[in-house]
Design a protein around this nucleic acid. Sequence first.
DNA 1: CATGAATGAGCCTTCATTCAT
DNA 2: GATGAATGAAGGCTCATTCAT
Lengths: 206, 206, 206, 206
Amino acid sequence: MAYRKTARVDEQMAERRARILKAARDLILQDKFRDASIASIADRAGVATGTVYGYFDSKVELLGEVIGGVSQRELDVVSDIVSKQAPTKEKLDLAVRAFVDRAVRGGRLAYLLIAEPIDKGVAAARLNYRKELAKVFARLIAQGVVLGELPRQTSSITAAALVGILIECLTEALSGSRTMKKSDHAGFVDEVATLCHCAVFRLKSP
Amino acid sequence: MAYRKTARVDEQMAERRARILKAARDLILQDKFRDASIASIADRAGVATGTVYGYFDSKVELLGEVIGGVSQRELDVVSDIVSKQAPTKEKLDLAVRAFVDRAVRGGRLAYLLIAEPIDKGVAAARLNYRKELAKVFARLIAQGVVLGELPRQTSSITAAALVGILIECLTEALSGSRTMKKSDHAGFVDEVATLCHCAVFRLKSP
Amino acid sequence: MAYRKTARVDEQMAERRARILKAARDLILQDKFRDASIASIADRAGVATGTVYGYFDSKVELLGEVIGGVSQRELDVVSDIVSKQAPTKEKLDLAVRAFVDRAVRGGRLAYLLIAEPIDKGVAAARLNYRKELAKVFARLIAQGVVLGELPRQTSSITAAALVGILIECLTEALSGSRTMKKSDHAGFVDEVATLCHCAVFRLKSP
Amino acid sequence: MAYRKTARVDEQMAERRARILKAARDLILQDKFRDASIASIADRAGVATGTVYGYFDSKVELLGEVIGGVSQRELDVVSDIVSKQAPTKEKLDLAVRAFVDRAVRGGRLAYLLIAEPIDKGVAAARLNYRKELAKVFARLIAQGVVLGELPRQTSSITAAALVGILIECLTEALSGSRTMKKSDHAGFVDEVATLCHCAVFRLKSP
DNA sequence: CATGAATGAGCCTTCATTCAT
DNA sequence: GATGAATGAAGGCTCATTCAT
C-alpha cells in the first residue's frame, strides 16, 4: 500500500509540475513575458504561489525550463532529420521546411524564442536554444563538407547564418498579428528554404 | 558676459546629458539591461536621480535613446553606401563589410541591439532598428532586381535574411568575452560577406 | 481541523484589516491627511507596507473606505429616523439630535468628514457623504411640504443649509482639542436643533 | 539717483510679488490645488522657480497668502456692512446678499475657500477665513441681542450656522460646472437670505 | 537679486520569496 | 507537501527647496 500511495503521490506531483509549466507557457505566449508573475502562474495552474517553489527553485529556473521545453521539441525535430541517411542538400531542405512550418503553425511561439522582452535569467535559456540549433546545423554542414557535398566553409558561421535567416524571416513574418494565407505560406517557405540552400552551397555569381 | 555664462551652462548640460547616456550605455553593456535602474545610471553618471528626469522624460525614453543613438549611426553608414552609384553587388559587399566591421570594433555593442534582455518599452526601439536596417537592404535588393542585376525575389524576405545573417553571425562572434584576432577578423568578414552575397544572388546548386 | 484553521485565519485577517483601517483613521485624525502615507499607516498597524495592498487595492481605496465607513453609519442613523412614521417636525428634531450626538461623541471624527486637507481621490468620498446626507434631508423636507407640514421651499437648498449648519456648528464645537462638558453639550444640541427647525419652517419676523 | 533707483526696484519687486500671487491664484482656480506646483506658478508668473523663494519663505506661505488675500476682500465687504448704522435685520440681509452675490459671480472662488483638496499648511488659512467670517457675524448677532432686536442665543453658534448655510448652499450651487441663470440666481439668493434670517430670529413653529 | 538646474527625500506600488499553519 | 498571507527590498517618478553662476 505504501508503494501505491507513493506512486499516486508521484503521479500527482508530476501532473502538478506539468500544470505549472503549462500555465507559465500559456501566460508567456498570451500576455507577454512581463505579466508572467509567479502569482499569475500559480493562479492559472490552480495551485498556491508557495507550491511553485516546491517544484522550482526560483522563477528563473521555471521560466528557463519553459523555454527549454519548447525549444527541445524544435531541436529534436530538426536533429532527427539531420541524423537521417540522405544527401546533405535534401536533409537541409527538410530540416528548414520542418522548422519553418512548425514555427508558422505555432504562431507566436517562434517569437517567444526570439524577440520577446525577457527576464534576465531566462535569456540564457533562449540563447542556449539558438546555440543548440546552430550546433545541429553545424553538424550537418561539417558532414556535408567532409562528404564533399558542400564547399569548404567555417561550419559554425554558416550555421549561425542559417539560424539568423530562419529567426529573422520568421519574426518578420510572424511579428504582426496578421496570419499568413495558405498560398503565401508555401511561397514563404520556398524562399526561406532557397535562402538557406544558397547560404550553405555558396555559389557566387561571377 | 551673459552670453558666455549661457554658453558655458549649455556646455555643461550637454556634457551631463552625454554622461547620463554613457552611464546608461555602459551599464547596459556591462551589467545587462535589468540592472540599469535610474538610480544606478544616475549614480554612475555622478548625478542625483532627479537630475536624470531633467534630461529625459522617462526611463523608456532614456534607454530608447541609447539604442536609437547606437542604431542611427549604423543605419546611416549602411544607408549612405546603398545610396551611392555603383553595381548592386559591390554596394551590398561594401555595406555588409562596413556593418560587420563597425560591429566588431564596437565590441559588445552589437549585442545590445540584438539579444539582450530588455525593457518592455525599449524593445520597440530595438525592433525598429532591425526594421529600418531591413528597409535599407530591401531598397537595395529591389533596385537590383529592377536593374536586372539580381534574380526575382521577395525583397522583404531577403532583406530580413540579410539582417538575420548579420545579427546572428555577429552575436555568435561577439557573444563571448573573447576578442577576435586580426587574422580571424578578416576571414570572418569575408565569410559573412559571402553569405550575404549568396543570399541575394540565390544561385542554386543543381 | 481545516475548518478551525480557516476560521482562525479569517479572524486574523479581519483583525488585520481592521487594524490597518484604524491606523489610517488615527493618523488622519491626529496628524492630518498628508502624513497618512502608506508607509506610516503600515507601520502604525504593525504590518509591512506590502501587506496593506493585500487588503486594499490602492491608497485612494483605503482612505475612501475610512471616510466611507465613518459616513455610512451616520447616514444610516439619520436615514432610519427619516423613514419612520411621525410628524416632520419631530423626525427632523430626532435626526438632527442623533447626528449631533454621534458626532460629539465621535470626537474629532466629524472634523475628518468636513474640513481636513484631503487627498485628491478621497475628496470624492467626502463630497459624496455630504451629498448623501443632503439627499436624506431633502427627502424629509419634500415630504413635509407635500403633507402641508412645511411651507413651500426649494428642498435641495434647505437640505444643503441643514448640512451646513450641522457641519459648521460641529466643526466649531469640535475643532479645538477641548472636550465639551455635559451641561454645555445639552445646550449646544438644543441650539443646533432649534437652528435646523427654524431653517425648515422659515417663520420670518415681521 | 540712488533714491529713484531704489524706488523703481521696489516697484518692480512689488509687481513681481503680485504677479506670483496672481499666478498661484489663477492656477488654483483653474487647475485644482494639486497642480499648483512652485514650478507651474513660477512659470505662469514669468519668473524662475528660485525667484519665488525671494518673495515667499515656502510654498505654504505663498498659498496661505493666496487664500488670505481672497478671503480678506470678502471679509471686508461683510464687515463694512455690519459696521454700518442700521437695524440688525437689515444689516444681516445686506451682508448675506453681498456675500452670496460675490461668491456666485466669483465662480469657483467660493469653492476654493471651502471644499477643494488642499495642502497641509494652507488648511490653516482656510479655517481661519471661516473663523473670521463667523466672528463678524457673531459681532452682529451679539449687538442685535443687546439691542433687543434678536432673541437670546449663543452668538458663536448662530454665527457658525450662518457660515455653514452660506458655504454649503454655495458649494451646492457652484460645485457643478453649470452656471446659474439670472432668474435662478435671484431666487437662490432670496432663499439663502431667508434661511439666514430665520436662523438668527429663531421663530419656532408651535 | 534673478536664475533654473540639481538635489534627494519621499511617495505609491509590485512581486519574488519565505514560513507559520 | 500545500497553502497563501506577509514580507520588504526595489523600482520609477515628483517636487519643494537650495545654491552656484
